[in-house]
């Protein structure tokens, strides 16, 4: 495998890791506050559709992004209402959101565009275009770092950079701010937060809303940046891989970055079977690579690689007791 192939592989890793990373951070906020969210998939899918639809109708990708975020936030509100206010089962609420999004997006797409459940292809201002960073062209011919800068670091859409900046930001919010302290506390022991005079419900809604925001961006990225338009079920299990990455990352922001990059690499390799064959000399089926994130999560959960301890109050609605 030559250097350029490696750079290309990593470049595609970054692009495939971006939605995973955004969804993983979404799950991180929600679960750190004690609300399990298996509805990441559904929220991403809904956001992918509404982003593409509104971008197609208005011709503006930014309006599309806003619509995607709004739709994802709406589903977050449903999840919050069911699992925080009415203390319902968080898993069931999440499953319902996934089903709702899967059916609703295709149905509305058919009604609006009559193209078999897809949106029209997006082009021009209706898509997030790659950004060329300064001097990228000039540096392209510099050996080693030239291609690295031009291919791998430069030339992504703005959402990719936003996703990667979200990692230090998440870390800073969680571990350096009052909000972060309270958020982590409410996922560990909501009674401690409640008796300290802080609203458990308010904190959990805030966390769920942040998750909605991030899932919205992830969905918009899928349909307006990674691809040019919405197709049925285009989230393709990414929400679940993001959950796997979250466990893999032990609910920590920096680990989440590495976990999603790793899973992104598997995705990139899946499209380049020739690369694997040339490196290890064996032909590996793509399906094995797609199964890897899940297999690795099982290994992690079985406790082989350190212990992944979820937030203690995760999944449990808070009921005041005397």
């Amino acid at each position: 495998m030559d250097y350029i192939t490696l750079i290309q592989l990593l470049d595609s890793t970054v692009r495939l890791a971006t939605p995973l990373l955004l969804a993983c951070l979404a799950g991180l906020f929600s679960e750190r506050a004690g609300v399990f969210d298996i509805g990441l998939e559904g929220k991403m899918l809904a956001a992918a559709f509404f982003s593409a639809a509104l971008a197609s109708i208005t011709g503006s990708v930014w309006i599309g992004l806003a619509a995607g975020i709004a739709s994802s936030l709406a589903l977050s509100a449903v999840h919050g209402l069911a699992s925080i206010t009415f203390r319902g089962n968080q898993l069931i609420s999440g499953v319902a959101i996934n089903f709702l999004a899967a059916g609703m997006t295709v149905l509305i797409a058919q009604d609006w565009f009559a193209q078999g459940g897809r949106t029209p292809s997006l082009f021009g201002g209706a898509r997030f275009e790659p950004i060329t960073l300064p001097f990228a062209d000039a540096m392209a011919n510099v050996p080693i770092i030239g291609p690295l800068y031009e291919e791998l670091i430069s030339g992504h859409s703005i959402l990719v950079y936003a996703a990667f900046l979200a990692v230090p930001l998440t870390w800073w919010i969680l571990f350096r701010t009052r909000f972060g302290l309270r958020l982590r506390a409410v996922g560990e022991n909501p009674a401690a937060v409640d008796t300290a005079g802080v609203s458990v419900v308010g904190l959990r809604y805030a966390a769920v809303a942040i998750a909605g925001l991030l899932c919205g961006v992830a969905g918009a990225y899928l349909s307006t940046a990674l691809q040019a338009g919405f197709v049925k079920d285009m989230s393709a299990g990414r929400g679940f891989i993001a959950l796997a990455a979250l466990i893999f990352a032990k609910w920590r922001p920096w680990y989440a970055l590495w976990a999603t990059l790793l899973f992104g690499l598997f995705g990139a390799l899946e499209t380049r079977p020739d690369v694997i064959q040339s490196v290890i000399g064996i032909k590996v089926q793509g399906q094995i690579l797609s199964a890897l994130p899940y297999l690795m999560t099982v290994v992690i959960l079985a406790g082989f690689v350190g212990k992944a301890i979820p937030p203690r109050a995760g999944g449990e609605p808070y009921v005041k007791e005397r």
Partner: peptide, 10 residues
């Protein structure tokens, strides 16, 4: 300090 923090930063 939980719940009795002085400002937004810890």
């Amino acid at each position: 300090i939980l719940g009795a923090e002085d400002g937004r930063l810890l």
